[in-house]
């Protein structure tokens, strides 16, 4: 009798233990990204995802001996979709901020670039303080640290803040003259201002903005709070690609300066 009970108990223990162990093996990692944020992540004309974020993710997956599957997701819904388990990690230039940390966990940063304003070359503004921009209209991408920064510090000072689904739309409205300026990641703006014709209208203005309260500690990979193991594996792989030079190679592929 005791044997039977023991056997049953062992069976129950095995059955309950088996589940979480199986779940902890990350053979395939589904990665969500925006696909509309060049040069970090964007879709080429064949709808393939490309960019620095994508290359970093692929390098990390290589180190973790896991298969990466990418999927594009609108920025506004990118954290809700992670929590909804549409994918397991976000590699989309997401800044590590206190507000987001309440929702998801972040790995260590994989790059850090400051924010900057851009304005029209002709008829633009020169100072970027909230007081100086009073009465002006400034744009940013919605659900970003840049949007929050403008909403919290500039709106109350009489600056009109417009928010867009993608950075592209904000840039287009700056070029058309609907906006007096945009606030965005400096590297993303650099790509638009310096490469191609669309950004010829406009230029950087003001200093780099690094307010940690808003702009956080750089861009990290976001995972669900319960996936601590995945976070650890990402951190380990990240340290490895920085150490073995893979990171530097990828950095050079996209930027003439270090963005770490």
């Amino acid at each position: 009798m005791r044997f039977v009970i023991g056997l049953a108990a062992a069976a129950v223990a095995l059955a309950t233990a088996a589940m979480p162990v199986a779940a902890k093996e990350w053979k395939t990692i589904r990665i969500g990204t925006e696909g509309a944020y060049p040069p970090f992540n964007f879709q080429d004309s064949n709808k393939e995802l490309q960019g620095f974020d994508i290359d970093i993710a692929k390098a990390l997956c290589d180190k973790m001996k896991a298969k990466c599957e990418f999927m594009a997701q609108d920025w506004d819904g990118i954290i809700p979709a992670l929590k909804a388990k549409k994918y397991d990690a976000i590699v989309a230039s997401m800044s590590i901020t206190e507000e987001r940390k309440k929702q998801v966990d972040f790995t260590d940063k994989y790059y850090q670039t400051p924010a900057r304003f851009a304005t029209k070359k002709v008829g633009g503004f020169t100072a970027v303080t909230p007081e100086a921009l009073k009465g002006k209209t400034v744009g940013a991408q919605s659900s970003t640290i840049h949007a929050n920064y403008l909403e919290d510090l500039y709106k109350s000072k009489g600056v009109t803040v417009k928010l867009y689904g993608t950075q592209d739309e904000a840039n287009a409205d700056l070029a058309a003259g609907r906006l007096d300026g945009v606030l965005a990641d400096s590297v993303v703006l650099y790509e638009w201002l310096e490469k191609g014709d669309a950004g010829k209208c406009c230029q950087f203005v003001g200093p780099d903005i690094k307010d940690v309260k808003y702009f956080g500690e750089g861009a990290g990979i976001a995972v669900r709070k319960e996936d601590k193991d995945l976070k650890q594996q990402f951190n380990k792989a990240l340290a490895e690609i920085i150490k073995d030079g893979t990171y530097e190679k990828l950095n050079k592929k996209y930027f003439p300066f270090s963005i770490y």
């Binding site: 506004d76 954290i79 809700p80 929590k83 507000e99 309440k102 929702q103 919605s142 659900s143 929050n148 909403e151 928010l163």
Partner: peptide, 10 residues
């Protein structure tokens, strides 16, 4: 949408 995006609360 602004409020939902900022608070992550449906």
């Amino acid at each position: 949408r602004l409020a939902a995006n900022r608070t992550f609360d449906e």
